[in-house]
């Protein structure tokens, strides 16, 4: 019950402040739109680099938003209440990550077909894009949460979180983009999707626990 309350509370608060969930989305769209301007507007070229563009943009956008996962809570003292509450911190943290994903990643996934359209992706590739984002963004949130929890007590850390977390994002990036490459070559995607799902489940199993441990360390600074 408490878990559901936390999820509902987080989602409502974020939805009522429109810019809280709109900023990562707009950032995502703008970064993707920069590439045709920077590289080349030529359709075939764009289609070739589209997987990389969309995945890197999604990754950056999540890094930007995950930074604030525990920030507000740490400032208002809500985090101390979470740590003191009789519920398992792992589950509470899992709920917070889940609601973060709903608010900040789901809009990215919903708008990604439109971006695929802008970058000349075929329907099959767009389908692969949505599937991989659906499986990959939870991993990015879960791993990012560990870093955000470690840095929760550090006053001004600026770009430190990307430095900590980016190397851990590499497998997701590789498998995400190569699924799209396979889709571009009209290959079956089952194997790729299975690996992405394995990454998701693996991080789902370990990351909330590690995030809870990191929060206990981070708060004490």
């Amino acid at each position: 019950m408490a878990l559901l309350t936390i999820i509902r509370h987080d989602i409502l608060i974020n939805l009522r402040q429109a810019f809280s969930w709109l900023t990562p989305l707009i950032f995502f769209v703008i970064v993707v739109c920069l590439f045709p301007l920077a590289v080349s507007p030529e359709a075939n070229m764009l289609r070739q680099i589209a997987p990389g563009i969309i995945w890197v943009a999604a990754l950056l956008s999540i890094l930007l938003s995950i930074n604030h996962l525990f920030r507000e809570e740490a400032l208002t003292g809500f985090l101390d209440l979470l740590l003191l509450s009789p519920y398992s911190l792992t589950l509470l943290v899992g709920c917070k990550i889940f609601s973060h994903w709903i608010v900040h990643c789901l809009p990215l996934i919903l708008i990604s077909p439109l971006l695929g359209f802008l970058l000349n992706l075929h329907p099959y590739e767009t389908y692969a894009l949505v599937i991989t984002l659906l499986l990959g963004t939870p991993v990015l949130c879960l791993l990012g949460a560990i870093g955000a929890a470690l840095l929760v007590g550090v006053r001004s850390h600026g770009l430190l979180l990307p430095i900590l977390i980016m190397p851990l994002y590499i497998p997701v990036l590789i498998f995400g983009t190569s699924t799209l490459m396979a889709a571009a070559a009209n290959q079956p995607l089952n194997g790729y999707i299975a690996i992405m799902a394995a990454l998701t489940l693996f991080s789902l199993a370990f990351a909330p626990f590690l995030t809870a441990a990191a929060l206990r360390i981070g708060v004490n600074q």
Partner: peptide, 8 residues
């Protein structure tokens, strides 16, 4: 980098 920013 992480070690360098945490003071305690």
């Amino acid at each position: 980098a992480l070690q360098s920013v945490i003071t305690d």
